[in-house]
Amino acid sequence: MWQHDGNMSRTDRLLRLMQGLRSLEPPVTAARLAGELGVTERTIYRDIATLRGLGAVIDGAAGFGYTVIEDASLPPLAFTDEELEALVLGLREVEAVADPHLGAAATAALAKLRARLPDRQAHRLKHAVLSAHRYFPPPSATVDLRVLRKAAWDEMEIRISYRDKHGQPSDRQVRPLQIVFFQDSHCLLAWCCLRRDFRAFRLDRIATLDVTGPSFRPHRTSLLRQHLERLRGQTDGFGETSREQI
């Protein structure tokens, strides 16, 4: 369920443990939790005790498994039934089309929602009428999209090795603005420092990615607005001129 590393902080481990107690089928054994987090069962026992000391209501014991009971003092989230269906549909779509890290984040978000909702709506979320599936998902990116998303948020220029639709390679210094999920591909909307113009790059055609700087803060929002306005002015919202760029 998680990709763990040896440098995980204790705080992060406790948060992930709580998330596991919420999302895995209860009662969850210490052995299962230890395997998910990459730690020993003894560590799980200590962390369960710590969570209880912090106020978490966790039923169960060693050898039987654990079940988390939400703190009744926390106010339930308030959604209409249609809002809830919309949230489920959106998060299921992310699970279906996003990279593994973002897909796992969508799964975790659904588990957190279910844990905080009133019983009736938690049941509705678990058995939602709406869902999303892709029999032919878009091609997977070959670079770490967490790095790309962070560079866009931090407004840092990146250098990419790219090949166009004809297979021609090029190196580009770009300002990443937004990742767009299209039906048949995912694209990076960016300002290309080489062409001195807006461009769209298919993620599955980016061979390498390096965050090089410099920072282009605080221009991301204004550049993105200009890029989207240009796209809206084309015939289909993402016209042939832009398609030729990718």
Results as ranks from 00 to 15, higher is better:
G6Q: 12
G6V: 14
N7W: 13
M8W: 09
M8V: 14
M8I: 13
R10A: 15
R10S: 14
R10V: 14
T11V: 15
D12V: 14
R13Q: 07
R13D: 06
L14G: 10
L14C: 08
L15T: 12
L15N: 10
L15W: 09
L17A: 06
L17S: 06
L17I: 07
M18W: 13
M18A: 15
Q19P: 11
Q19S: 15
Q19D: 13
Q19A: 15
Q19W: 14
G20Y: 00
L21S: 09
L21M: 04
L21R: 04
R22L: 13
R22H: 10
R22A: 12
R22P: 08
S23N: 08
S23W: 07
P26F: 03
P26C: 05
P27Y: 03
V28E: 06
V28T: 07
V28A: 10
T29D: 02
T29E: 03
T29V: 07
T29W: 02
A30I: 08
A30T: 10
A31C: 05
L33A: 04
L33C: 02
A34Q: 03
A34P: 00
A34G: 06
A34V: 01
A34Y: 00
A34R: 00
G35D: 02
G35W: 02
G35N: 04
E36W: 01
E36M: 00
L37D: 00
L37Y: 02
G38C: 01
G38R: 00
V39R: 03
V39S: 01
V39A: 01
T40C: 09
T40A: 07
T40V: 08
T40R: 02
E41Q: 03
E41A: 05
E41W: 03
R42C: 04
R42G: 09
R42E: 08
T43H: 09
I44H: 02
I44C: 04
Y45E: 11
Y45T: 14
Y45S: 13
R46W: 04
R46P: 08
D47V: 04
I48P: 08
I48L: 09
A49L: 09
A49F: 10
A49C: 09
